[in-house]
Design a protein around this nucleic acid. Structure first.
Length: 987
RNA sequence: GGGCUUGUAGCUCAGUUGGUUAGAGCGCGCCCCUGAUAAGGGCGAGGUCGUAGGUCCGACUCCUACCAGGCCCA
C-alpha cells in the first residue's frame, strides 16, 4: 500500500528550497557578518538614507574593562533593535558605539599588575599602560558586540581617552566655568597619611584595629530650658567617639529629631550633673561599670524625656571641650542610630562624609585642622599642634580627663579602613575639591542647574522636556535631582583627564573659561598626556591673564610662576559630555537633544543625570528627547547574578553555543522594563522558538519555489482562506509596527512568533497544502495562495530583521523571486506597511442580519471578521469531534465533516465556505446536510464520520471523496486530480 | 533605613475605565501524520492572580500592612 500511495508523488508540486532547515548559526553568522563588512552594508545604508529624517540613538559608553556580560548583551541588543528598526522605517539612524576608558578600575588593574614596581615608574608610564589596557578591551568588546550582530560605526567608535574627545570634554567644562558654576571647596575624603594621597573606596581594606572608645561630656552653653533639670546643676550632652583626634574639629552634635531623649541626674565629685542622651541608650551607657558614678556607687536619677527636636527648637549649644570660648550647636540628622554610642553624635564636617553632609545642611564650616602628613596645624589647640593624629589621641583623652569631661575611656577592637597599599590606617580628611554648583542661579534665565533639570524632567518631550520609558523613570530621576548635592568633579588619581587648574605661588587657583580653552587646544593636539609633559607656559601658550576678564589680579598669575594642579575629572564628567563630544562634534545632530538614550535603570543616577547637568549648564537644554531604561539581568529565581554565588550565565559561551540570533531573540522576548531572568535553560527554550520561526520561513520559501510575483501573482478569491490570511497578516503588520514604535519588542516578537505558530503554520499552511501540492502548477487557486504566502514570507522577514538580522538576511537571499525593486539586503529595505483596506476588512464585524437574510437571501453577507470568527469556531468544534473519532479513524483524510443546517441562510453561508472548511480541517471531504431542526441556540452543527467504507481514496491527494473513481481515465483519482493529471500529461 | 520598582499556570507574556466559568504560545502528557521529516498537525492537563486584611453588590484590577526580589542611595 505504501507503494501505491506514492505512485503520483512525482506529479505533485512539493516544496522546493535551499534555505536550510538547520540554522547552523555558528557558521553562518560570522560569514554573514563578514559579507556585511566587505560590502560595507552600514555605509550603504547611510548612503541610502542620506537626506532622510534623522533618528539618533546616542550610545552610552560601557567601561573598557573585561569581556562583555549578559547585561551588555541585553543593552546592545536593544539598542540594535532600535537602530535597525528606525533605519527600516526609512530614517537615517547612524550609530556610533563608544567606550569609557579612564578611571580607577583600570588604574588599579595596572597597579596590581605592576605591584612593587609601580612606585619606580613615572606617572606617564602608568598612564600609558592604562591606555594600552583600555585600548585592548575596546577592541575585545568591539568584536564581541559585532559578533552579537550590532550594527554601527565600529570602524570609528568613540573613546573618552581620545584627544578630540578629551578636548571636547574640556570645552564643556569651560562653558560651565564660564557660567560660574565651578568652584573649589573642602570635602572630606579617605586619606592615606603614609602616601599623602586621597583614596577611593575600592582602595580601602578593612582590618581590625584597637582604638580608644571614649564617652565625653559637652557642657551646655544655651538652651537649658529644653532639658528637665534642677536649678544650679551643671548640664551636659553626652557623646561617644572612637576617634578622639577628630574632637578638635567638632562643630556640632547631631540628634535624631524623632527619637526620645532623656535627662538624667548624677552626683559627681565636682557636683551634681544632668546629662542628656538617647532614652534607649540609657541603660547601656549609664550602666557601664567604668563610669565615675558606677565606681562611686552614685544613683542615677531620671529627670524626664523629650524628643530630639526639642533640643533643636531650643537652639541648644555647648562649650567645645578642647577650645576655650568656642561653642558648638545641636543639629538634626536622620542617620543617628541607637545601636551604639549615646544617640548624640559628635559631628566634625572635616572628618566624615555624613558629618560633612550634615554640615552642608546646617551651614557649618568644613573645618579640618589635620594636614596632609597627618599632623595638626596651627589652628588646633596648643597641646597637639604638630602632633600626628595617632599620638594626639592619647593627649586628647588625657586633656579631657583633666577637664573632668571624660566619662568613660576603654579600648575597643573594631573594623577600620586601611590603605591597601601601605597597610596603614586611613583617616577622613577634608581636602580642596572642585565642584559644580547645582543650586547657583546662572545664565540668562537665572535658574539653577537643579531647577532646570527638574523642569526638563517634569515635562514631556513635546513641551521641551524629556519622555521616559517606562514612565516611572521620570519620578525616579526627579527624586534624585531634588536631593542631589553639588557635584564633586575632582579625583586624586593618575588615570584620567586632568582638571586644567593652575596654582600660583600663594596656592590660589587659575581656572577660567579662557585658560581651560587654551589648555583644551593643546589637549586636542597632543592628548591629555600633554598636561604632564608640557610646562604650564607651554600649556598656556598664547594665554595672558591680563586679557582674561575672569582673572581679578592678573599680576599674581604670571604664567611662568604657575604650577599644575594634580586633580583629574570624575569619569562621569567625561561620559556626561558625550552629547557634545560625540553627538554634536561627530555631526549626528546640529544641536541637542538627540532622540534617545537607552541604558540600564542604574543610569538614572549615572549617565542620564550626569549628562543632563553638563548639557543644561553648557548648552541650556537637555541632551535627550527620550530616556529608555531596562532592568537588570538576574538569575532564574530573580536574584542578582554574582560570580561567588555561581548563578551567572556567560554571554560569550551562549553566543558561541547558540548563536547571536538566538540570544537576540531571547532578549526580544523579555519585557525589559522589569528585571530580566536569565539562565542556561531559559535561553535554551528560545532555541525552540527560533526553530519554529525558521521552519515557518522555510515552508513559505518552499511553497514559493516556482513562484515569481512579477509573472505569477493572482488575487485570492473573496471567500478563500487566503483572504483571511491576508487580513491576519496586515493586522500583524499594524500591531508589530505599533509595538516597535513604542519599543515594546517583547510584544512585537511574541506576536511574530505566535503568528508563525498559529495563523501561519497551524491554520493556513496546513489548510493550503492540498492546493499547493495537488493543483496544477498554474492553477489560479494555487497561484493566489502562493501570492499570499510570498507576501507572508517577505513581510515576516522584514518584520523580523531588526531582531534576528542574520537569519533575516539569509532568508532574504533565499527568496526565489523577490518583488521588483526590493534591495539586495533586507536591511536596506523598508518595513511593510499595513494595507488600510485590509485592516478595515479585518475589523468588519458586521453580522448577518437573520431577518434580512430570510427576506433577501441573495444579499446574505456578514463582515469578514464576523464570518471568519464563525468559521474558526466551527473549525474548532469539528477538530474536537475529529479527535474523538481518532479512536477509529487515525487519519482525517479518511473522515468527512458534515455541516448540518436548518435554514437557507445558514446553508448558503456554509456552502460558500465548504471547500475552505475541508482544507481547514484537513479532512478528505466536507459537505452540507439539511435537517429539519437543530438544538436550541445552534445554527450550524458539525459532525464527523468515518468514510473508509463509504468513499474510495484518491491515490494522488489521499483524500476519500465521493467522486473518486468517476473519471474514466483515472479511476484511482478524484475528479480534480484526474483533470490535473490530464493537464500535466498534455504538456 | 529611604526613593523608585516588580511579584498572574513549569517558562515567557496578555488581561481595556473594578463586572459572567482569568487568556495565549511554549514546555509537559496523550495521539496522529510520514508529500515541511533532526519537520508538521490534533486534543488534554496545568493558576486560591506573592500573603493577610479592608473598601465595594462585585477586586487580578482600588486601599493598607506584610513577605520575597531588583536598581539607586544612606
Amino acid at each position: 500500500m505504501a507503494e501505491s500511495k506514492n505512485n503520483y508523488k512525482d506529479t505533485l508540486n512539493l516544496p522546493v528550497t535551499d534555505f536550510d532547515m538547520r540554522a547552523a548559526l555558528l557558521q553562518k553568522e560570522p560569514a554573514i557578518q563578514a559579507r556585511w563588512k566587505a560590502d560595507d552594508l552600514y555605509g550603504q545604508i547611510r548612503a541610502a538614507r542620506a537626506g532622510a529624517g534623522r533618528f539618533i540613538l546616542h550610545d552610552g559608553p560601557p567601561y573598557a574593562n573585561g569581556d562583555i556580560r549578559m547585561g551588555h548583551a541585553l543593552n546592545k541588543a536593544l539598542k540594535d533593535f532600535v537602530v535597525r528598526l528606525r533605519t527600516m522605517e526609512g530614517l537615517d539612524s547612524p550609530y556610533i558605539p563608544g567606550w569609557d576608558c579612564h578611571g580607577l578600575p583600570i588604574e588599579q588593574k595596572i597597579l596590581d599588575k605592576l605591584a612593587a614596581k609601580a612606585k619606580q615608574l613615572p606617572a606617564g608610564k602608568i598612564r600609558q599602560l592604562c591606555a594600552e589596557y583600555a585600548d585592548g578591551f575596546v577592541k575585545v568588546q568591539s568584536d564581541q558586540f559585532q559578533r552579537l550582530g550590532v550594527m554601527g560605526e565600529f570602524a570609528k567608535p568613540y573613546v573618552t581617552m581620545a584627544p578630540a574627545y578629551e578636548a571636547a570634554t574640556l570645552d564643556v567644562f569651560a562653558r560651565l566655568v564660564e557660567a560660574g558654576l565651578v568652584y573649589k571647596q573642602l570635602k572630606p575624603v579617605h586619606w592615606s597619611i603614609a602616601n599623602r594621597t586621597a583614596l577611593a573606596d575600592a582602595e580601602l581594606e578593612y582590618e581590625d584595629r584597637q582604638d580608644e572608645s571614649i564617652t565625653v561630656m559637652f557642657a551646655l552653653a544655651d538652651g537649658a530650658d529644653a532639658i528637665p533639670h534642677e536649678k544650679g546643676d551643671t548640664l551636659a550632652l553626652l557623646i561617644w567617639t572612637t576617634t578622639p583626634w577628630t574632637l578638635p574639629a567638632n562643630l556640632a552634635v547631631a540628634v535624631h529629631p524623632r527619637y526620645d531623649y532623656v535627662a538624667v541626674r548624677v552626683g559627681l565629685e565636682t557636683g551634681p550633673v544632668t546629662l542628656v542622651l538617647a532614652q534607649s541608650r540609657l541603660e547601656a551607657v549609664m550602666g557601664n561599670p567604668l563610669t565615675p558614678w558606677a565606681k562611686a556607687g552614685v544613683r542615677v536619677q531620671p529627670m524626664g524625656t523629650f524628643k530630639g527636636q526639642a533640643l533643636i527648637d531650643a537652639g541648644v549649644s555647648y562649650h567645645h571641650p578642647l577650645f576655650e570660648g568656642k561653642r558648638g550647636r545641636v543639629v538634626p540628622a536622620e542617620y543617628v542610630t541607637l545601636e551604639d554610642g549615646t544617640g548624640l553624635v559628635h559631628t566634625a564636617p572635616g572628618h566624615g562624609l555624613e558629618d560633612y553632609m550634615t554640615g552642608l545642611a546646617n551651614r557649618l564650616e568644613v573645618y579640618c585642622p589635620v594636614q596632609a602628613d597627618g599632623t595638626f596645624d596651627d589652628t588646633a589647640p596648643d597641646f597637639i599642634r604638630g602632633v600626628d593624629v595617632w599620638k594626639a589621641n592619647a593627649l586628647i583623652v588625657e586633656r579631657l580627663k583633666q577637664n573632668g569631661m571624660l566619662v568613660v575611656s576603654e579600648t575597643i577592637t573594631h573594623s577600620y579602613p586601611h590603605d591597601w597599599r601601605s597597610k596603614t590606617p586611613t583617616i577622613f580628611r577634608a581636602t580642596e575639591q572642585w565642584f559644580v554648583a547645582v543650586d547657583k542661579p546662572f545664565g540668562p534665565k537665572g535658574q539653577s542647574l537643579r531647577r532646570m533639570a527638574i523642569t526638563a524632567c517634569g515635562k514631556v518631550a513635546d513641551e521641551g522636556g524629556v519622555d521616559f520609558i517606562p514612565a516611572w523613570g521620570r519620578n525616579r530621576i526627579l527624586g534624585m535631582l531634588e536631593t542631589r548635592p553639588d557635584w564633586c568633579l575632582s579625583r586624586q588619581r593618575a588615570w584620567g583627564l586632568p582638571i586644567p587648574a593652575f596654582y600660583n605661588e600663594a596656592g590660589r587657583p587659575l581656572l577660567t573659561a579662557k585658560s581651560v580653552r587654551t589648555v583644551a587646544a593643546v589637549v586636542a593636539q597632543k592628548g591629555a598626556q600633554a598636561w604632564f609633559d608640557c610646562t604650564p607656559a607651554e600649556l598656556l601658550a598664547g594665554y595672558d591673564p591680563a586679557d582674561d576678564e575672569q582673572v581679578d589680579y592678573p599680576a599674581e598669575f604670571a604664567v611662568e610662576t604657575l604650577t599644575r594642579g594634580e586633580d583629574i575629572f570624575d569619569v562621569w564628567f567625561e561620559s556626561g559630555s558625550s552629547w557634545f563630544a560625540v553627538a554634536m562634534q561627530r555631526g549626528l545632530v546640529q544641536n541637542i537633544p538627540v532622540d534617545l538614550y537607552l541604558e540600564g535603570s542604574d543610569q538614572h543616577r549615572g549617565w542620564f543625570q550626569l549628562s543632563l547637568l553638563p548639557a543644561l549648564g553648557a548648552a541650556g537644554v537637555a541632551p535627550f528627547k527620550a530616556v529608555l531604561t531596562h532592568g537588570f539581568v538576574v538569575d532564574k529565581d530573580g536574584k542578582k547574578m554574582s560570580k561567588s554565588v555561581g548563578n551567572t550565565v556567560d554571554v560569550l559561551e551562549q553566543l558561541n553555543k547558540r548563536g547571536a540570533d538566538v540570544l537576540r531573540l531571547w532578549v526580544a522576548f523579555q519585557n525589559y522594563q522589569d528585571d530580566v531572568r536569565c539562565s542556561e535553560e531559559l535561553i535554551a527554550q528560545t532555541e525552540d522558538a527560533y526553530r519554529k520561526i525558521r521552519n515557518t520561513l522555510r515552508f513559505a520559501m518552499g511553497a514559493c519555489g516556482d513562484f515569481d510575483p512579477a509573472t505569477d501573482a493572482a488575487d485570492p478569491a473573496n471567500h478563500s482562506v487566503d483572504l483571511w490570511m491576508k487580513m491576519e497578516l496586515h493586522a500583524l503588520v499594524a500591531d508589530v509596527r505599533e509595538a516597535y514604535d513604542r519599543y515594546e519588542f517583547h510584544r512585537a516578537a511574541r506576536m511574530l512568533y505566535e503568528f508563525c505558530t498559529v495563523q501561519a503554520s497551524s491554520v493556513y499552511f496546513s489548510a493550503v497544502k492540498d492546493r499547493l501540492y495537488c493543483e496544477s502548477p498554474n492553477a489560479l487557486r494555487r497561484r493566489a495562495c502562493q501570492t499570499v504566502i510570498h507576501q507572508v514570507l517577505t513581510t515576516l522577514i522584514k518584520l523580523l530583521a531588526p531582531i534576528i538580522p542574520h537569519t533575516a538576511e539569509e532568508a532574504w537571499g533565499h527568496i526565489p523571486h523577490r518583488e521588483v525593486g526590493e534591495p539586495a539586503s533586507v536591511h536596506l529595505a523598508l518595513l511593510p506597511e499595513a494595507d488600510q483596506a485590509l485592516l478595515r476588512l479585518a475589523g468588519d464585524l458586521r453580522p448577518v442580519n437573520v431577518d434580512d437574510a430570510a427576506a433577501a437571501p441573495d444579499r446574505l453577507e456578514g463582515g469578514p471578521a464576523w464570518t471568519w470568527r464563525r468559521l474558526m469556531e466551527l473549525r474548532q468544534a469539528a477538530l474536537i469531534k475529529l479527535e474523538a473519532l481518532r479512536k477509529d479513524v487515525k487519519n482525517p483524510l479518511d473522515a468527512e465533516a458534515v455541516f448540518h443546517v436548518a435554514s437557507d441562510a445558514d446553508a448558503e453561508f456554509i456552502e460558500t465556505y465548504i471547500r475552505e472548511m475541508e482544507d481547514l480541517l484537513g479532512v478528505g471531504y466536507a459537505r452540507v446536510e439539511r435537517v429539519d431542526s437543530l438544538p436550541e441556540g445552534v445554527s450550524i452543527d458539525v459532525s464527523v464520520g468515518d468514510t473508509r467504507e463509504k468513499y474510495q481514496r484518491c491515490a494522488r491527494s489521499w483524500k476519500r471523496r465521493p467522486d473518486v473513481g468517476t473519471h474514466p481515465e483515472y479511476p484511482d483519482l478524484s475528479v480534480r486530480d484526474a483533470i490535473v493529471m490530464k493537464e500535466l500529461k498534455a504538456r
